[in-house]
Nucleic acid binder design. Sequence first.
DNA 1: AGCACGGCTTGCAACGTTGGAAGGCAGTCA
DNA 2: TGACTGCCTTCCAACGTTGCAAGCCGTGCT
Lengths: 348, 348
Amino acid sequence: MPSPPVPSRATQRPTTLRDVAEAAGVSIKTVSNVVNDHPHVRPEMREKVKAFIAQLDYRPNGIGRQLRQGRTGMVALALPDVTSPYYGELASTLVNAARERGLTLLVEQTDGDLDREREVAAGFPVRLVDGLIFAPQSLPVDEFKLRRDTTPAVLVGEYGEGSGFDRVTIDSVDLGDRAVQHLLGLGRRTVAFVGDKGQGMVRPPVVAQRVEGYRRALRHARVRFDPELLWPLGEWTRGHGYEGTTALLAARPDVDAIFAANDLVAFGALHALRRLGLRVPQDVAVLGVDDVEQAQFSAPTLTSIALDRSEMAEMSLRLLTDRLAGYDGPERLLTVTGRLVARESTGG
Amino acid sequence: MPSPPVPSRATQRPTTLRDVAEAAGVSIKTVSNVVNDHPHVRPEMREKVKAFIAQLDYRPNGIGRQLRQGRTGMVALALPDVTSPYYGELASTLVNAARERGLTLLVEQTDGDLDREREVAAGFPVRLVDGLIFAPQSLPVDEFKLRRDTTPAVLVGEYGEGSGFDRVTIDSVDLGDRAVQHLLGLGRRTVAFVGDKGQGMVRPPVVAQRVEGYRRALRHARVRFDPELLWPLGEWTRGHGYEGTTALLAARPDVDAIFAANDLVAFGALHALRRLGLRVPQDVAVLGVDDVEQAQFSAPTLTSIALDRSEMAEMSLRLLTDRLAGYDGPERLLTVTGRLVARESTGG
DNA sequence: AGCACGGCTTGCAACGTTGGAAGGCAGTCA
DNA sequence: TGACTGCCTTCCAACGTTGCAAGCCGTGCT
């Protein structure tokens, strides 16, 4: 009878419960009981088995465990792009928060692309996660509503009104209102919003809300609304912010304040104004949204509206873990409000 | 005989192969064959089964599949922090590159913390991934060498010499050399390196190499090496860069150039110099490493050394997938070299 | 001595999937 | 008509784990 071949290091089979059981001369189940700290194992037996576990470097096979338990302990996080500071920080906090709860986070990037977001909504082709945290950008709400996947989902961002899903949202109307109030309070009267999207047609909720806040502040201060000051941008990036601001000031040299859709756009705007030889805040005041760390270090430092990303991350995970734990009630909505941090770019 | 209870939406059991099989009146294996595009299924049968699959929204259970196949299709990426632009871009590219290869990336953050890095090296307590891409910061190489986990691993960064593992590395000696050459080429003679670590004791490899490059450039230009100009920093962040630079210029007002350990430190340095009323580059030239996007938008724009993160990501994944495909040869080493991008902060 | 009890250990089954082998059926050819 | 062939389908087992129920054994009580 041939002896079994000696496995090479690379093909070495990981230790299983059975291996430990055979080595220790006990049943598989007893080893399992030791691993899972179940009662009804004699202390000396427990010690003995633990010794073999350590010696053989036994670590449970997650797959087997998950198959048995029907849950994977994994949660998908789908967002446009971890590279942007806003989403990056959200992802970072979520990774850690999930870890603390014994969950593993699977990161998926959509680039805000409609088709990719559709795929996420439809559910991953292979069922692998217990839940989903989703920050959509382009997907119409009605489409998400119709998803057949019954995995619990939490929506993050301005998006999702009327979707019937749990949401962590930002009060962007209030945010826009306060941003523009601040600029008007400096005596500025020609305030541009840089970062409009889908104007005339369907604005994504984030944009629609910020614009509504913008108009509310104007109305309140009895300043005439000038639609030309809603300046469109393909994407909310530094590059687009730079191009857009350059074009804006060519068309409207009378602009004396810029409400940038987010901090990246604001950095692009600062750069453009510098290139144009305009002083910030003396000639043009600039205000961004997100309060990314760089805002404290740019020249000039950037006034911004801070959103508590770690709070948002905690909230989303809490909503999701409730569902995982069996909560089956109606949708819930948690709202985060912004906090204005005044810095040099608005004379602060 | 009681009929089975109607499941509520929340507890609805996902569709399995068995469900489809029963609905279609065929065996489980036939459905499996259809799902996996296996031969020996009559076309009309295939169509019929596909119809049921669509109707019942059947999607394979990843766990069952993985258990059967012995692989999870998941790869862990362990790095200090996705929030920093450098690691964020690495993670972002890796997520997409893994996706293209049908792999799923699991992101783990260590904060560069020794204990967390130890855990990663020891292997996750629950076996769940087929491979590991690891960017360590504090872990001594010797410790990593001894890891018992036989999962294939790829090390990313300056770290890992002599570890016996596949590596994607950066030639940081050359990088430091070229950085300082550039500054000396501007006529500067008092070049500080901001971001030294563990000086006197064991410098982490990144630092050791950049310092070696720094000294090599000085030697080559016959400029005396002044150890006081290696300025220590607890961490390579904007905040530490700001504090460190402020302290540096208090101690050494004669500094006329700063080689910052990375771009974040450089942004902190720019901010500090502005606060001190010093002009960049006229009074002090500043140069960073990583060429993050913000470098093109800061005031002044930042000269930096670009490292191709997407190339590094592709390389790491290639090394890893080779191992997953069974390659069992000796360790391999791929090296990325930096490219200097001159901007305003050095008068470019 | 017999019995019950409680503490510890084991055996069985099942989670959902797929490779391999065996089974069935119709058509073809001698 | 019977055997063979080739295609399609089904059956069986196994991946590693854990809940449940049953089994065993020694102790203490009557």
